[in-house]
Design a protein around this nucleic acid. Sequence first.
DNA 1: GTCTATAATGAGATAGAC
DNA 2: GTCTATCTCATTATAGAC
Lengths: 198, 198
Amino acid sequence: MSSKVNTREKLIETASKLFETKGYYATGLNEILIESGTPKGSLYYHFPKGKEQLALEAINSAGEKIKSKLESILNSNINPVDAIISSIEHIATLIDNDQKIKDMSISLIALETYLTSEALRKACEEIFTSLGSIYAKKLINSGINENDAYKLGDVIAAMIEGGMTYSLIKKSGKPLRLIAEQTPKLLNITSMETKQSN
Amino acid sequence: MSSKVNTREKLIETASKLFETKGYYATGLNEILIESGTPKGSLYYHFPKGKEQLALEAINSAGEKIKSKLESILNSNINPVDAIISSIEHIATLIDNDQKIKDMSISLIALETYLTSEALRKACEEIFTSLGSIYAKKLINSGINENDAYKLGDVIAAMIEGGMTYSLIKKSGKPLRLIAEQTPKLLNITSMETKQSN
DNA sequence: GTCTATAATGAGATAGAC
DNA sequence: GTCTATCTCATTATAGAC
């Protein structure tokens, strides 16, 4: 039962949480070390390239969590519109209860780093693309044609990302709930168009 | 012709640009001073409370620019749907040409500071609220009822904010253009509903 | 009001013992 | 693989001459 894997994982876990909530530049390496109970030497053994390398792994870890959580929520509703709406309301509830981002969004670290680190930018880009695809696939399952579905998936993903920013800054899930309320308009027209041709 | 006002304004201007693009924590006071050609002593004369006070004024300055720019674009189209679409496409073009935020979004500094500075959080919240209202007022002018208009205004503002994040990270105006393309669906239904009762 | 020098702290990173 | 001591540099902020 060595700490071979655990130390590394614990570091990524802690870094992921702090980078997501406080941001990349506001989070010091020392803070990550103290909160994870790791000495500095171990960090540089596991992540020789330092903070940026740790951030890359933290972003990927956060991305996996966000993606799998979204997929699981979407899968609990057969109807894609209901599924997407409840995924939005789920985040709104999280923000109302606990006033910060945890396994919800990488917007902060993405905006902080896209100009300074191409590696981190690309990691964030891939996650954003994946989220759009997850929404798109749910729509495809309900009969919307692929082209429309991928367009809508990206629009929905971006809209929710913006909604999270609004909700966090306003300290209220309301902006997200307004988005949830308007979402059917975005989806129904497309699904009607495809169904009209039947 | 003293620098009484100019030094102060120049500092706010420079800080505003750097905070918007690089972020609050990644931007050092020294960087602001060098780029604006101001000695450190002057900064603390004009902003005794230091970086946070400067940031507050920088956020408000950026907010005013963003708001007035949006209003001017929306006013150049009578039709509210066309106006909103072209405001989105305008930002998309800016991002395609110049790969960073300038007088477009305060999302970055908002997400960086909402947990650590209530003053900055409130400043950002006010701007987000104002942007929603600007879209709402354009919709009200076209006959949409006030209640729906304010809901839609916030949704549109949040959606565009998320679209900017997506476009910046993807280094492409495409996400914003997809949003512009889908926007009529969001707006037409409401406007149809209100017009159907005529 | 302006400017320079400097303090005080904390950051990221490294060296080397164990 | 782990841990500690330390280096270097950049940060925000202050003191005091002009």
